[in-house]
């Protein structure tokens, strides 16, 4: 009897061990269980729905890939630079113009019937037939132009490699250099930790420059004198997060600012004084698959506004242009 009990217990233990080994072998528990050393950013990334004051009205794809830069003119024409190509659409998204470029433009601007393209270290100017009328020499061969704007016979060019904004005359001659580092005057210059350095024209065609390393938006005159600045470094919605933000800037017709932050992706509106108003779009509006992956690029390549206050976003993940209107 005793022997039978021993055999029965042994068999029971044997099957129990087999069961545990099999379960451990086939289960995937280690991959799914929570890890105490994980840095959870979900709470920081989430945005309360009450903060959103814009909604996506539509989005559209173009017959070109690698959408990189966008600008809207006063006639609501949409100028978009993509992979070695530029397309111009009317407000109904009918194609008005399509031409190729030697390289992909990193920035685009339209003024005085001319299309200005920033291509790596230099500026190219095209007419409305898509013909290149001018190719300007780079300020330095090492230049990397990330943004440009033109007004009143002046062309402002943001050079992220040399941390300056260059002001050119109509004929292409250099008028002034804005934001040059000057140790004697105690001027640090612009702090550009990554290749995101944007400029925009304000309500009165005044020049706004992003100083991303300082989390500031700075207003300069054409001589390079600082007039005013605002900005706050913070993970909260009121401020600019991360090492170097905002990455992109656009200005609404009423003088409000539209900013895009990379890293913790969010597009927000600030009023004319720099006071936070609301959110246009957050990470959930873009391709969610990309959120958890290790990314060195931003999800948004460029933003722009039109005279109606619509915000245009070049979604780099989906390669579409998204349009956001007020709720």
């Amino acid at each position: 009897m005793r022997q039978k009990i021993i055999i029965a217990v042994s068999l029971l233990l044997f099957f129990l061990v087999i069961y545990l080994i099999t379960k451990d072998f086939f289960s995937n528990h280690a991959k799914n269980e929570e890890n105490p050393t994980e840095y959870n950013l979900a709470k920081l990334r989430s945005i309360d729905s009450s903060q959103f004051c814009y909604k996506e009205s539509r989005h559209f794809k173009l017959s070109m890939k690698g959408l990189n830069a966008i600008v809207i003119d006063s006639a609501y024409r949409i100028f978009i630079a993509g992979e070695n190509e530029v397309q111009v659409l009317d407000s109904s998204l009918n194609k008005l113009l399509d031409f190729t470029t030697d390289s992909t433009a990193d920035a685009i601007f339209f003024s005085n019937n001319k299309i200005y393209l920033a291509i790596q270290n230099h500026v190219e100017i095209y007419d409305m037939k898509g013909k290149r009328v001018q190719k300007r020499n780079p300020y330095l061969n090492s230049s990397f132009i990330t943004s440009l704007v033109a007004e009143n016979n002046r062309l402002y060019v943001a050079d992220a490699a040399n941390n300056v904004v260059l002001c050119y005359n109509e004929d292409g001659s250099l008028k002034s250099i804005i934001g040059k580092k000057d140790s004697l005057k105690g001027e640090q210059g612009f702090i550009i930790p990554s290749m995101y350095f944007d400029i925009a024209l304000g309500q009165y065609n005044d020049l706004w420059i992003v100083n991303p390393g300082k989390h500031l938006l700075m207003n300069y005159n054409e001589k390079g004198d600082l007039r005013t600045s605002w900005g706050l470094a913070s993970m909260q919605l009121e401020g600019f997060s991360g090492c170097c933000n905002p990455a992109q800037l656009a200005i609404l017709p009423d003088g409000s600012f539209v900013t895009y932050e990379k890293g913790m992706e969010r597009i927000k509106i600030y009023d004319q004084t720099g006071k936070y108003k609301c959110v246009v779009a957050g990470e959930s509006d873009f391709n969610s698959k990309a959120i958890n992956n290790f990314r060195l690029d931003a999800m948004v390549n460029d933003i722009a506004t039109d005279l109606n206050g619509t915000v245009y976003v070049v979604d780099a993940v989906s390669d579409v242009v998204r349009m956001y209107v007020k709720k």
Binding site: G242, F294, R295
Partner: peptide, 10 residues
């Protein structure tokens, strides 16, 4: 790494 990737250059 997560902090640098999320808020910086990675």
């Amino acid at each position: 790494v997560k902090g640098c990737g999320a808020f910086g250059n990675g």
